[in-house]
Structures are given as C-alpha cells and as structure tokens.
C-alpha cells in the first residue's frame, strides 16, 4: 500500500463520483427528452442546443427555491433524510468494476475502487439501508402522506429485496464467487450470464425497478395518491437530493444489471481484435457505459409505458410470484450444477 496506490484510488473514486453525478444530472434531461419523444413531443430544447443546459437550469432553480421546513418536523432527521439517501445511492459505485485494468510501467491499475471479495454482499447491504433515507425523511416530515409513503417504501423494499437477493444467489452459485470482478471476468466475450439465467434476469430487473422506486412500482411517491409521498414536505435542494438520488440509483442499478447479467465490460470478439490490453480496457469501459445507457433508457421506457401497480398487486407480485420463482430458479440452477459435476 504505497502512496501511489492510495492516490490512484482517490482519483479513481473522485472520477467515478463525478461521473455518477454527471450521468445522473443528464439522466434528468434524458428522462424529459425520452418522455417527450414517447408522447410525440420534443421535450426541453430551449436551454442551449437541444436543451443541453437544462439540468443546470433545473439545479439552479432548486437552489433558489424557498427552503421550507414544517414547524413540527424533527430538524435533525429532516435534514438527515435526503443526505442519507444521496450518500447511500453513491456508495454502491465503489464495488462496481467500471473497466478491466490499465497496465502502466508494469503496475496494474484496476478500474474498480474496491475489489472486495464479498462485493455482492456489500451491494445487498447497501441496498437494504437505502430505504433508511426515505424512512427517516418520511417520518421526520410529520405528515401523514409522507409517513404513508415511507411505510410503503419500507415494505416494498423488504419484499423485493428477498426476491432480488435470491435471483443473484443463482448467479453466485454458478460463478462460485462473491467478487463482482470475478463474476464479470467469467462472462468473457459473449459468455454472458443472461443466457444461463434468463429467469433470474427477469426477476432481478423487476426487483431493480421496485428498489429504485421507479414506475410501475413508484408507490412510495405516487403523486396521484400521496402528493409526492415521502418527499411531500421537502422543497429546494433537499427535494433535489431525493429526486437526484433516484437517478443515481437508476444509474447504479443499470450498472449492476450490466455487470451481473450482461458481461460488464466484456464484449463479443474482444479476443480477435488483436488490441493491446490497455486499448481493450478503454473499449470495454465504453461498451460498459453503452450497456448502462441502454438500461437507463429501458428504465425510462418502462416508466412511460406501464401504469402504476396497485399496492396489493405489488405485494402479491413480490411475495407470491417473484419470490417462489426465484426459489425455483435457485433449485433449477443447483440441479444443473449437480448434474454437471457428476458428468
């Protein structure tokens, strides 16, 4: 652990933080653009060419909005809520392998902040505390709608986390490792997990939508019933944090989907290109971002296609359909592995 190494990790962490923020920022623009195009409109196009400065304008607007805090709110928790949501949303990016590695002067620099050997468990852990920000915010607002939103968020997260974890367990069983980098490396070329675990992928992506509070599972904040749910009482940049965290979550979720099921930075014919290791890493990272961009788009596509679930439907889907399916998926995976080992 020399100084060089620490410096490199610091820079990498900052760059990834920055990229996550910028991507989330421009996801808001993309969301509005995509929504526009889905509805035969153009979307925002006045701030700069094609609306390129719209996110800046939105951010500026949020900063200048009145800071409102309900008189009966718990001050400390009220501020803690959005901050926690934002922080937790950014935490997951540490274990995602954003690319292979650069070899400079014989030293290997991996494009992953922390290659911990329990990466998958880390992701689960972060995911499950992700709901705390929403819970705390909803509770601290001292508002019935916020509270209902927060309670909904909590039960939704718990319900879908189970199925989500179970769908990843099948992947872990297949690859025999908990390190995300190893999981990615095993999906070399076109050898992606999605071909082996289509059911697991389906369960995972549905749960990812639920965990991100994205439509059709955006019940904690559904404006038609709860006037915004847990962030009803929030305004100004605190509200901005909540909304922004949603986009970061979306970005990270897309990255996780791409990592676990679509080979991360692997791409077809990567061996037959005859490129150097470093060049391959660059292309791989770009490919990874294209995959992420596709899933971010997919998130939006779903939002503007599907209507919101009713709450009982949501619970039924989670407990009565996805969870049993995930268990069956594990059983099948285990069975296939057993047969393979005996052949």
């Amino acid at each position: 652990m020399d100084g060089n190494y620490i410096l490199y990790k610091l820079i990498l962490a900052s760059v990834i933080l920055l990229i996550s923020l910028v991507v989330a920022m421009y996801s808001t623009l993309l969301e509005r653009k995509v929504a526009g195009f889905f509805q035969d409109r153009l979307g925002p196009n006045r701030a700069g060419i094609g609306g390129i400065f719209q996110p800046l304008a939105d951010g500026l607007k949020l900063f200048f909005k009145e800071e409102f805090m309900p008189g009966t709110a718990d001050k400390f928790l009220y501020i803690l809520g959005p901050s926690l949501t934002m922080m937790i949303a950014l935490l997951t990016s540490a274990v995602i392998p954003w690319g292979n590695s650069f070899i400079i002067n014989g030293t290997e620099y991996t494009l992953q902040v922390a290659d911990i050997n329990v990466g998958v468990l880390y992701v689960f852990a972060i995911l499950s505390i992700g709901v705390y920000g929403i819970m705390i915010g909803g509770w601290a607002s001292n508002n019935k709608y916020a509270l209902i939103g927060a309670v909904r968020a909590a039960s939704q997260m718990i319900s879908y986390e189970l199925a989500m974890s179970m769908s990843i367990i099948a992947i872990v069983m297949m690859s025999g490792t908990l390190s995300l980098k190893d999981i990615v490396d095993q999906q070399h070329g076109m050898n992606w997990n999605v071909w082996y675990q289509p059911l697991g992928f389906l369960i995972f992506i549905v749960c990812a939508f639920a965990e991100c509070n994205r439509s059709p599972f955006d019940l904690p904040e559904c404006e038609t019933e709860l006037i915004g749910g847990y962030h009803t009482e929030y305004s100004s940049m605190k509200l901005g944090f909540y909304l922004f965290a949603e986009y970061i979550n979306m970005f990270i979720s897309s990255a996780m989907i791409a990592t676990l099921f679509f080979g991360g930075y692997n791409f077809p014919f990567m061996d037959s290109l005859n490129l150097s290791h470093n060049a391959l890493t660059i292309i791989g990272s770009l490919v990874f971002f294209v995959k992420i961009a596709f899933f971010v788009f997919f998130f939006m596509w779903v939002r503007w296609t599907l209507p919101r679930f009713r709450y009982d439907q949501l619970m039924r889907l989670g407990w009565k359909s996805l969870l049993p399916l995930a268990i069956i998926n594990i059983l099948i995976t285990g069975f296939v592995i057993m047969i393979k080992n005996h052949l």
């Binding site: 995509v34 889905f38 035969d40 779903v302 296609t305």
Partner: peptide, 18 residues
Amino acid sequence: IFGGFRITLGHFFKKNTT
C-alpha cells in the same frame, strides 16, 4: 408489457407534433 413497449417505441420514432 411487450405490447406496450412496441406501442411506445412506435411513438418514439414518430414525427412529433410540436
């Protein structure tokens, strides 16, 4: 759901009315 995706994608590439 896939039917819905097809419809929305169709609109995505349609000429907009703005």
